[in-house]
């Protein structure tokens, strides 16, 4: 096994072009587990830990550009106010040690349907900046996941950063696992209310081959809020509408039975999480 340690981003991109089969590693919380399980044996590993640019974040043009190497711990401690949904998701990741090592970029690279960051990124309409020696491009997050553990990266590309607007409204994240910490999601749900544009964002995790958006549920909720003049009045949505939102989220899922849970349970739980997270978000909105 060859172990590459670029010192700069430019060098990392050149190495990836020269050896596109190289497997990038940041925190190693997925890569090393896979190696340990002997799931695959990469010929080349590209260690990105020395590329300091990757662990920086800054505001740019009204958005935030967050380097792919920013750890979950730092998302929680430095970005909770601007990215509350992602911070909540980060808090549910593994243990303190794993949150110190693991990165959002790594989560995107692995592209597991159970990745905890994904529902939050979907709900908040993030975009992913990917780069190669040929240049950079932004991929909307809902075009990023192609299949189980497959993403839209070209062989010579690396994930540079993700872009998000500072939260334009309340955001929530909830995850069901059969243990109270250190657990892979049985299913998870991210919700974001955009108060300025009066839209709703959703993300479903671990209940389909890829992380999903519940498009119909988003439109339904946005319309229900607009039709009843709720944004202005702050009045709660009728119970029937809240339940309908939950049902639509459940319908958007494409779950299977596996060792972590049944498809029927996942659908049921998603409906509950959708209702509850909306209630919390709305409470926050009306509390002002």
């Amino acid at each position: 096994m060859e172990f590459l340690q670029p010192a700069t981003w430019r060098e990392a991109l050149e190495m990836k072009t020269a050896q596109p089969q190289a497997l990038p590693i940041a925190g190693g919380t997925d890569v090393l587990v896979d190696l340990n399980f002997d799931r695959h044996r990469p010929e080349v590993i590209l260690d990105l830990n020395r590329v300091t640019e990757l662990s920086e974040w800054q505001p740019a043009n009204g958005r935030l550009r967050v380097g792919a190497g920013v750890s979950y711990s730092r998302v929680i401690s430095e970005l909770s106010d601007r990215l509350p949904g992602l911070a909540l998701a980060s808090r549910s990741v593994g243990s303190p040690q794993i949150r110190n090592r693991g990165t959002v970029g790594g989560n995107l690279g692995s592209a597991s349907p159970a990745g905890d960051a994904h529902p939050a990124l979907l709900a908040t309409r993030a975009s992913i900046e990917v780069s190669s020696v040929r240049g950079s491009r932004e991929i909307p997050v809902d075009e990023f996941f192609l299949g189980p553990k497959r993403n839209a990266l070209k062989p010579d590309e690396l994930i540079a950063a993700f872009w998000l607007r500072p939260a334009p409204g309340p955001q929530q994240f909830a995850k069901v696992g059969t243990r109270n910490a250190m657990v892979i999601a049985v299913c998870s749900f991210g919700l974001a209310l955009d108060v300025e544009q009066q839209t709703v964002g959703t993300g479903i995790g671990s209940a389909g081959p890829i992380p999903l958006r519940a498009g119909e549920a988003e439109r339904f909720l946005a319309e229900a809020l607009a039709d009843g003049n709720h944004w202005r009045s702050g009045q709660p949505l009728p119970q029937s509408a809240r339940e309908r939102f939950g049902e639509l989220v459940a319908q958007a899922a494409r779950p299977i039975d596996d060792v972590r849970g049944t498809a029927a349970f996942r659908r049921r739980a998603l409906a509950v999480l959708a209702r509850r997270t909306f209630a919390w978000a709305w409470q926050e909105y009306t509390a002002g």
């Binding site: 995850k175 109270n180 999480l273 509850r276």
Partner: peptide, 16 residues
């Protein structure tokens, strides 16, 4: 959250 079912996974604030 750590004292509720689901813990820091944030599944309930007391509901249910």
């Amino acid at each position: 959250l750590r004292e509720l079912p689901g813990g820091v996974s944030n599944t309930t604030h007391g509901e249910g």
